[in-house]
Amino acid sequence: MNPRPSYAIGTGLFILLGFAALAYLATQTTSVANIHRGNSYLIKARFQNIGQLKERAPVKIAGVRIGDVQSIALEPQRMDALVVMSIDKRYNDIPDDSSAAIFTSGLLGDQYVGIEPGGSPTFLKNGDEMVLTQSAMSIENLIGKFLVNGGPKSSGTDAAPASATPPASGKP
């Protein structure tokens, strides 16, 4: 009946190949690959200023990604930013006196939350809040301080710039 049945088969194969490519892109190159729902727990942290931090920004310890920022909201009473982070279940032994700070990857890169582990024997659980936080350091602030205080040595009051060169980027 069909004069050239190979068309139908070829077309079918082509469509399948196209969808296979789409599935590959969707699962292997996007954040869908990182979503382990139910395999993560939530912790909170408050910041005076989150700078340019965005939802889905990475959360890292010692430069290793352990989760991402799930939501950012302004808390009306205290007028600070409440950042909820979702952490991979594998890292369930973060001391509860750890501190969180907002860093910039590279000179002009995106911002992320870096966690500095404390020494407490008890660990953060789902819904816990980190007490020790440090706000984002903006370049404008840095330059301002530099100009007012006349040099980088007097920036010791704030440790952020010094520790803002974490081994985030893996390789150079």
């Binding site: 292997q28 190159t29 996007t30 954040s31 990182n34 990475p58 991402d68």
Partner: peptide, 11 residues
């Protein structure tokens, strides 16, 4: 790549 690329916004 996987941490930044978004299924909806990008793909």
């Amino acid at each position: 790549m996987t941490s930044t690329v978004d299924l909806h916004k990008d793909v």
